[in-house]
Write a protein that binds this DNA or RNA. Structure first.
Lengths: 169, 169
DNA sequence: AGGCTGAGTTTATTTTTATATACTCAGCTA
DNA sequence: TAGCTGAGTATATAAAAATAAACTCAGCCT
């Protein structure tokens, strides 16, 4: 256990450690998926939509924002466009999630789960996520590399290699 | 397996199912924590900050927005204020996370993890989250109730009890 | 050739955020 | 009792984001 963790520590990180708040993976993730509509677009992709017009219809999101968000997601490698063609129509782009996009699923599942727990409709959740193999309900969890299920209060956040002090002002 | 899942299904939800996109736990969660600064405030609480002035200094967020976001988080029961008193100062409010707030940790860990994987500084992550008991790295995962680790493509999303068709337009 | 459709782009307007500054208010300290 | 401090509130302005509606453009269909 690190020296600064000994004696009287209550909080997760050394108090007064003047981190640079923008040098943070959470902030960097939110720069990409934290704008309005982005997560909901990903939700729709995850639920099986892939057409521009589907996103627009289901989300009710303005077209220019939808175009901007899709452009961002493609630039960032979270979605890719493929061509698809329906009989009688010309070829159009199809938005498909990449492995990098798939890696956002735990975060989105976490949001879904919190909403199900605290803000669901009286009848229950709108969508159930199940394991395709065994049919059991899927849940976002936090676990350590030893396989223990870790509750929030059993975590400690320690400075990593890129933790630089905030430049003095 | 449900009838609509048979034959030719590729996407996670029955195609053309006209869900009402706003009747969604993800959307409802984002209504509360999806505004700018909110998740970053929670991150700071999680890292051990609790004073108004700490949030302001570390995040560089405007005071009026900070006050508005804290008010929202308290209204929603994600944070509570307690009184704390430093010697020589009068009693002041301290923002403390509730169990309801703790339940957002899996989602926030998911965001952290994605940023660590795809947008970290060259030196590595800024913060490491460890299990207080065994010291091992903590990770956000998706698992089913049978304990299987479930990848995104092994999930299926099926309509839940509150899945009403979108009202015809 | 003319119309239709999906996938956007453009432009104008409104709403949110951001920034900056001044102000309040309680209680500790000199 | 006057000043200082932390935790806000109030107000004004500027910048950014969201919304709404009209417009473009390619290619299929008649």
């Amino acid at each position: 256990m690190d020296a600064w963790m000994e004696s009287g520590m209550e909080s997760a990180v050394a108090p007064r450690l003047d981190r640079d708040a923008s040098n943070c993976s959470i902030a960097r993730t939110l720069e990409i998926v934290g704008e309005k509509w982005t997560i909901l677009i990903l939700r729709e992709v995850w639920y099986g939509s892939f057409r521009f017009s589907d996103f627009e219809r289901v989300l009710g999101c303005p077209r220019n924002l939808l175009a901007a968000r899709l452009r961002m997601l493609v630039e960032q490698g979270i979605l890719v466009t493929e061509a698809y063609k329906e009989p009688g129509s010309r070829s159009r782009p199809k938005y498909v999630i990449t492995p990098k996009g798939m890696d956002l699923v735990p975060a989105v599942m976490g949001l879904l789960q919190w909403g199900d727990r605290y803000r669901a409709a009286p009848e229950g959740p709108t969508v159930l996520v199940r394991h395709r193999g065994c049919g059991a309900r899927v849940e976002a969890q936090t676990r350590c590399d030893h396989g223990h299920h870790v509750q929030a209060h059993d975590m400690e956040s320690v400075p990593g290699p890129a933790c630089l002090p905030k430049p003095a002002q």
